[in-house]
């Protein structure tokens, strides 16, 4: 199984192919279309990560000590970023998720989307993913 670090490096390599912002954003929009769709019944208040710009829904399940995430958003760019976060963190060990350093966002030059100022639900989503992993590791 690839580690969180390996998966992040892969993404950074994929983004290195794009020279301008348009290519990068078109890629993110494409990624949003590939994200495994989330069951509509899960898009409720319990799974909602509220942002004032866009909404995010997050579901976490554990299986054989690994945590699996499912997520969705009403905005495409947010959804594309979610697709990357799910790819990096889903199916990993709780402790690895809890202690992970998500350096790829900065490396591919998309840190502004994770800033709390954007209030698109992404920063809160990462926090929730980690909190879930910490809670699971402790139990």
């Amino acid at each position: 199984m690839e580690t969180i670090e390996q998966k992040q490096k892969e993404i950074i390599e994929e983004f290195a192919l794009f020279e301008d912002w348009m290519g990068k954003y078109e890629f993110i929009i494409d990624l949003s279309k590939d994200l495994e769709s989330m069951d509509d019944s899960l898009k409720d208040e319990d799974h909602l990560v509220r942002g004032c710009q866009s909404q995010v829904w997050l579901e976490a399940k554990t299986e054989d000590g690994l945590i699996h995430f499912q997520a969705d958003s009403d905005a495409l760019i947010t959804k594309g970023l979610i697709a990357m976060l799910v790819r990096v963190l889903s199916g990993q060990k709780a402790n690895d998720i809890a202690t992970s350093d998500l350096f790829f966002i900065d490396e591919i030059g998309l840190h502004e989307h994770l800033s709390p100022n954007r209030s698109n639900g992404l920063a809160s989503m990462v926090k929730k993913m980690k909190t879930y992993a910490i809670a699971y590791s402790a139990s």
Partner: peptide, 8 residues
């Protein structure tokens, strides 16, 4: 979505 348009 306004967030997507605003970001672009």
């Amino acid at each position: 979505h306004p967030y997507d348009v605003g970001s672009l």
